[in-house]
């Protein structure tokens, strides 16, 4: 067992974990932050995407001990403390970027990482960046629209396929 100290959504958190404890497991079971979803547990689906030191990673494919001393941001830290959604979350609501919502935490965290690297991505760039995030409801179309809108771009140009 190892002690870990991880700054999660700006708050320093401590825990005692096994070597094999995944970051996703520590967040969900250790800290009760169940917004980080585990969809496939095989690194494919991206529902578990969080940011580690600002970079998108699949938290089901990283050990909690590897995050020791680092900063982790999850979906719970995206809205303001009073519950006001951030621009990406609001755009997902406005553009119906979710149906069942299971993939949404990962989609929002990937979108946030993309917009940090590239503040005004084109449609193709958004689709490419979301290659590691699977949605089985919306067909991605409204997710792409939401991210365009969150980056202040016109979404009317995208025609339904």
């Amino acid at each position: 067992m190892s002690e870990v100290r991880i700054v999660v959504n700006g708050v320093e958190r401590f825990g005692v974990v096994e070597g094999r404890t995944l970051l996703s497991g520590f967040l969900r079971d250790g800290l009760g932050l169940t917004g980080t979803h585990v969809g496939c547990d095989t690194s494919q689906c991206g529902a578990c995407v969080v940011h580690v030191d600002g970079q998108a990673v699949k938290s089901c494919t990283m050990f909690a001990v590897e995050a020791d001393g680092r900063s982790v941001d999850t979906i719970e830290g995206q809205a303001a403390p009073d519950g006001t959604l951030n621009a990406i979350q609001q755009a997902f609501q406005d553009h119906h970027g979710l149906q069942c919502g299971f993939c949404t935490p990962g989609m929002v965290m990937s979108a946030a990482a993309l917009l940090k690297e590239n503040p005004t991505p084109g449609e193709a760039e958004i689709r490419e960046y979301l290659e590691g995030n699977l949605c089985r409801c919306t067909g991605y179309h409204n997710i792409v629209k939401a991210i365009l809108a969150a980056s202040g771009q016109d979404v009317a140009a995208i025609a339904a396929e």
């Binding site: 690194s43 991206g46 995407v49 580690v52 970079q55 998108a56 990673v57 699949k58 494919t61 990283m62 990937s110 990482a113 993309l114 960046y129 290659e131 590691g132 995030n133």
Partner: peptide, 9 residues
Amino acid sequence: IGDPAVRNR
């Protein structure tokens, strides 16, 4: 290679 999150690790 892979996807953006995989490339970060």
